[in-house]
Design a binder for these strands. Structure first.
Lengths: 200, 200
DNA sequence: GCTAAAAACAAGCGCTTGCTTGTTTTCAGC
DNA sequence: GCTGAAAACAAGCAAGCGCTTGTTTTTAGC
């Protein structure tokens, strides 16, 4: 039963399994069974189990990089830029829950060389965020006691999303991103203040 | 070579290995080697590999619960309470990096029954946070558009800590907790506002 | 210094793992 | 409907896994 897009189907099934069971707990036989073929037949499409993990995580990394680049290169106000960057980041997660989860949770299972490639892309991504924040501070729009810390907090909070977001839930990605940006920009004590882009 | 506290030593080594390699990628032989004995000898101290994982995660859960309970039961102002809760949460992570990482990252590797026990404790912990936040809102000290969302954001951000905190770094747990609370309470746009406990 | 229990060793069992090999089936292009 | 290539099958291998068993060594209490 050959089939067009078989390879993509395998990647999808592998993503789902890696997400729910983890990379090491998922066997080649699990993946092949989910794909409707025998384990040996898998190797007509892939070279190794780790290839699957790498391709999934690398695609994930590229998605984050692509979506943030377009935001960073725009000529918006820093506050709007931050908001847009958050929306972009969150959209990548909500639109690709399986791949994003594998990207965050399983990339360390890669062997040395390939892990370095992913690490490099993670660094690049964080550097873009750092630039975005420092630009906002230079223009006097952010009050960052500790820019590096702020960056880590934002990304930690945003990345946590993959652990609790359910596509069938009541919140759309945009609503999630909005609430997110509101809290981060203004905090949640009752004082007025902070800045909101009500024009959206 | 018998030794007092051998069991604790094994738990510690297992925590370190589970943290760096993950539960499934860590073998009984890895753990026994790190403990300075042969793999068979391990079973004089533990019943199974999963027992190790459960004991580590369960201890982690109990640490979080204990530390938050003492904060919740105090009679402080909600803002101070929130700050104290954050400090407590962060202290548990920074003081027990290995166990905390295993607790956050590997608990899903537990089998059904024991995973449910941990899940229950996680729920209990989150419920305490929910109560803490709703109390703050009732007393008019927080402005929470979406309390559930706020709770998820706080915990996501705080839990991310285990991925980047290094004990040998420049920030002490208290400094981390302070910066944390500042941002979450006041946001980081440049407007004044938010509430800070400068008396500390 | 004797003794019983606890701890560690030495060896290996049964099973699962990722992957390979040799063969058969399916399919597209003519 | 023939043909070559791609895909799937059937069988199984070598290695590593968690764990057990039978024996020896170490230890604490008298």
């Amino acid at each position: 039963m050959p089939k067009v897009g078989r390879r993509e189907q395998i990647l999808e099934k592998a993503s789902q399994l890696f997400r729910t069971k983890g990379y090491h707990a998922t066997t080649i036989r699990d993946i092949s069974e989910a794909s409707g073929i025998l384990s040996g037949s898998l190797y007509a499409h892939i070279k190794s189990k780790e290839d699957l993990l790498f391709e999934i995580t690398d695609r994930g990394a590229e998605m984050f990089l692509r979506s943030l680049r377009s935001v960073v290169m725009s000529e918006e106000d820093p506050v709007t830029k931050l908001r847009n960057a958050l929306v972009a980041h969150i959209r990548v997660i909500t639109d690709n829950l399986e791949a994003a989860t594998v990207f965050f949770h399983e990339w360390k299972a890669l062997t040395e060389e390939r892990r370095r490639i992913i690490q490099q892309k993670r660094d690049e991504y964080e550097a873009m965020w750092a630039r975005l924040l420092s630009e906002g501070e230079e223009k006097g729009r952010f009050r960052l006691v500790d820019p590096k810390f702020a960056r880590l907090l934002i990304l930690s909070a945003a990345n946590g999303l993959y652990q609790w977001y359910h596509p069938e839930g009541e919140l759309s990605p945009e609503e999630v991103a909005d609430r997110f940006a509101d809290i981060l920009l203004s905090g949640f004590t009752e004082s007025e203040g902070g800045e909101k882009d009500e024009s959206r």
